[in-house]
Design a protein around this nucleic acid. Structure first.
Lengths: 234, 234
DNA sequence: CGACAAACTCGAACGGTGTGCGAGTGGCTA
DNA sequence: TAGCCACTCGCACACCGTTCGAGTTTGTCG
């Protein structure tokens, strides 16, 4: 197996001032957070660093590898409380909310997450801390893997959809309420033969954008944790 | 509001044989299923249709709109049983499995799904049928929306990750077991300070690729449905 | 029949993309 | 002073989505 992005190390920089991988990752993160996936190009990134585009390729083999680094960076932002500090359920709740807010901070994640494997060191650390938490709750071995992975899948699934709808209104350049008015009309135009959907859209609009997203997330999370609770063997 | 992809209709074709939207959608779907998102370009698609690249633009305003059409097509493939035929739980199970296998048939979905809003007619129909199912189970109004959406989020989250790992091995060109051997080594190289993760990876490898994915999916789905069951008001 | 509009097709071109190549440059060590 | 290594970067290639405007076929109306 060749050196991978995770293990490779370039020799220490000499006296001269040069680009560094850290610097590249940090700037790319900023660019991505501001402009989204479409806004990250090697040329733009290099320009923001005051460098030539192809200079980046000395530090990073490929744009995809750079993205892998950025994804791993996000995994590093996520809290998993130690089980002694909160109960397992409070811990899982905290973990889930931390995961959600990390994704909301980096809304480009869902777009790339499912394209690349997550085997970086920070993903590993996250996994280990998660397994410890669920392990302490009584999920051991396979059960621990499954318990953690179903919570993560739920959170990532929900928040990916959440990000999509948030990005929708952001890109429209309208206010939330203007955009929701427009959505209502568009939906009704398509869904006029589905009264169920009309009512559903109407309900969501009545509740308010933010409230609906929050409660939606909390509801499913609670459901999942309830389901897990009954599976704990004392 | 302008005519959208969903509502626009071009006048009927004259006697001459021409490209049709149906034909385009169908061919694009095949291309996407075979080669993934990266393999779908307007030029390639046109070539496969024996047409000039820019001819497509008479039928479709933009590549993004074409993708919207394709996504909606997938939503149309999903079964939601009528509640009278199975109980709600069997119905939800069937719905979830149907959703999973549709995504597995179209593994490019997760990559694009979260980029575009899903407001096409087939998405609407799916939503309506889902709400009927969960409605019959006793989830009405807001509860129905939430119940359905948390099941969908779980399924899409899980299966998106599943697709990512399946694509990984497919692209590596190795057999599943060869690839898993390699994964083990890579993981261990990164995770040597996380014994929890080492054991977890080891467990997953022991179980076999397919089995692990299936059981993982089933486990979380069962957890979620258990949690929902306790919320049904009689 | 001829004229005209509508329904399509499509080649050329624009401004972008990721990246390979090979020449160049600065600093350290011997 | 010579030479090597770390690093930068302009050029070029093969793609991409999309615009433009000119071209061709068809049906319709006078």
């Amino acid at each position: 197996m060749n050196e991978s992005i995770w293990t490779r190390q370039r020799a220490a920089a000499p006296g001269r001032e040069t680009l560094s991988l850290d610097q590249i990752v940090q700037t790319a993160m900023a660019l991505l957070d501001e402009e989204g996936v479409a806004g990250l190009s090697m040329r733009k990134l290099a320009a923001k660093l005051g460098a030539g585009a192809t200079s980046l390729y000395w530090h990073v083999p490929t744009k995809n590898d750079l993205v892998d680094l950025l994804i791993d960076e996000v995994w590093g932002e996520i809290d998993v409380p130690q089980p002694e500090l909160a109960g397992w359920r409070a811990g899982a709740l905290l973990f889930a909310h931390s995961l959600r807010s990390a994704v909301l901070r980096h809304p480009w994640l869902p777009e790339v997450m499912y394209t690349r494997p997550s085997v970086g060191p920070k993903a590993m650390s996250l996994g280990a801390r998660g397994l410890t938490l669920f392990g302490a709750a009584g999920f051991s071995g396979n059960e621990g893997d499954r318990a953690m992975s179903c919570v993560m899948s739920y959170v990532l699934g929900t928040v990916s959809a959440e990000v999509a709808s948030r990005e929708m209104v952001r890109k429209s350049g309208q206010s939330e309420s203007d955009w929701m008015d427009q959505l209502r009309q568009e939906t009704l135009a398509v869904a006029d033969q589905y009264p169920e959907m009309q009512k559903s859209v109407h309900r969501r609009l009545e509740q308010g954008f933010e409230t609906n997203l929050n409660e939606n997330f909390a509801y499913g999370l609670d459901v999942m944790l309830d389901g897990l609770q009954t599976r704990i063997k004392q």
